[in-house]
Amino acid sequence: MSEESFKEGIVAAIPSLRAFARSLSGNRDRADDLVQETLAKAIANRERYTPGTNLKAWMITILRNQYYTEGRKRKREVPDSDGDHAATLTALPQQNGHLEMNDFLSALQCLPEDQREALILIGASGFSYEEAAEMLETRVGTVKSRVSRARSRLDELMSGSPDFKRDSASIEASRELLQRALGV
């Protein structure tokens, strides 16, 4: 594979990579950092890419590894508990039931990581269950059940799960958190 077509393939994959990273991390700035690092790794390791195989899948696998490697470091630095994400959700369906994209990104962060990434690969990145299973190094049935649990959990969250407080203090706190997370 020539360097030109490798580059073209990468450029074509960038919107998918950014969308994937935004959905996975819930944060646009961090997402672009992840994409940047992914591009650097893809270039450095281009000999390992097998021409003819799915370049987008190869790059998303790199991005995902990068995300989890960083995530493990970050968790020790900034404890961002599920409780914080849940708090962001209290502000969610307030605006005429209209769901804003930032709210959705925030809701995704309430899902367990394995469910979130399965849902994104299937629902957003357009991979088949078989492809996703290969990328996640698991079985097709596992991917299916993760996606299905993710969908029910999102439905549940969006319909105002009683788990979440709706007092004004937590709504205010969640707005701040959301704005900080999204770098608005």
């Binding site: 969308a19 935004r22 369906p93 039931g97 769901l99 994209m101 994104i120 629902g123 969908r151 319909s159």
Partner: peptide, 25 residues
């Protein structure tokens, strides 16, 4: 939000949100 409203197109609303994220990217 009333659940019946939000959950009207169960499968779809999630897909729609992802499409918006992709379109934006």
């Amino acid at each position: 939000a009333v659940p019946s409203q939000v959950g009207k197109s169960k499968e779809d609303w999630i897909g729609n949100q992802f499409r918006r994220i992709y379109d934006e990217a």
